[in-house]
Design a binder for these strands. Structure first.
Lengths: 196, 196
DNA sequence: AAATGATATTAATATAGATTAACTTCAAGC
DNA sequence: GCTTGAAGTTAATCTATATTAATATCATTT
């Protein structure tokens, strides 16, 4: 059930140029997998075995705290990655869950495979270096938004920045992502309607 | 005024092994610089020209919002890095400031130099890939702490995790780092004293 | 040693956002 | 077509934290 790898190779092409041989080798190290809505790609407590590239669908990465409250770390739609990186890098139990909000097709790279890939295609070190660079910048900016903006402004930013995600995921998950309760997000939205 | 490069090379040694030739080449691409307490390594609005490795001293990376309020993104002491990464990677004006809280010695890698280094010593791609990996994990964890812990618990975590920093930087900067006002941090501390 | 300015504390009041609880909507299953 | 349960809304009350303002501390400069 080999799914379409074109989007994945195009995505890699944006940062590095691979030869045909390298592409072929890379493809042999990938796992193609389809999940149904509601299935877990990673579960808190399990070791995260793969970095997951989303071909289609939508994933929610979240953390459940001691009080049982859920905290959304990120959403991953087409051409995004998802994993519990701490668990993956150290192969220790995950703190986070990755859940399918829709039927989702992913391309997975396993822990052993990624090391093999780094060795055989050193350009991939560059690729992931750049990927991780961009990811740090995104996290840094999100931190600053959380520290300096009100909940309302964080919501407006989210809507503007990720209009496609806003339509696809439950509102309570967006509330958690921006760091408020679902009730307060409802209040923000009704205020926004009054303001227009 | 070539400063001691030993700590820097040891630090790199933790993740990759460089030949003597590679080390020599690397050293030719570095800038050694001393700043006085109160000087800026990066200023909001300027392009961030360097990634800065702290040999000695202490840096504060922060953002000043439209209301003039300061938000501390990170502190960097010995063997840490500091930069406005978004500005550095894209060579566009910085959103953040990096200020010396103490007299500080840094090793700087310039934007052109880092690219040369990546080309001539591909192992450095691996080095920074690993560095950035770890950095993402740290940011992710900080995000989760900000979303799921109370201010008091964030303060206790900070004290426990960075006891050396707690002693060296002003309390109002710690307050900002954990995401509260300095007045509220004072309250937290006086509560903690009562509790013992 | 007095003056200055940055840092820190304390207390009173205000507010953004949480909590609780009741109610609504709507899709999915029986 | 009724039932169920998840998702979303609304409103009342509560609380963690912000704001404001006054005071205290302490290192640095004059």
């Amino acid at each position: 059930m080999q799914m379409n790898t074109e989007s994945f190779l195009n995505y890699i092409d944006e940062h590095i140029t691979l030869s045909e041989d390298e592409k072929t080798f890379l493809l042999t190290k990938l796992n193609f997998r389809k999940y149904q809505k509601g299935q877990y790609v990673v579960q808190q407590g399990d070791v995260c075995r793969y970095e997951n590239f989303v071909v289609s669908g939508c994933l929610k990465t979240f953390f459940v705290d001691n009080e049982g409250d859920e905290h959304v770390i990120m959403f991953s739609v087409e051409n995004w990655w998802s994993a519990d990186l701490s668990s993956f890098f150290t192969q220790t139990p995950a703190d986070y869950n990755v859940l399918c909000l829709e039927n989702t097709e992913v391309i997975q790279i396993g822990f052993e495979e990624i090391e093999e890939l780094y060795i055989n295609i050193p350009k991939l070190e560059r690729f992931f270096r750049i990927l991780f660079q961009n990811s740090i910048v995104a996290f840094e900016k999100r931190l600053v938004r959380n520290l300096s903006m009100t909940a309302k402004d964080r919501y407006l930013y989210f809507k503007k920045r990720y209009p496609q995600i806003e339509q696809r995921v439950p509102q309570y998950a967006i509330a958690s992502y921006i760091g408020v309760t679902k009730e307060f997000l409802s209040k923000i939205k009704s205020q926004l309607i009054l303001e227009q």
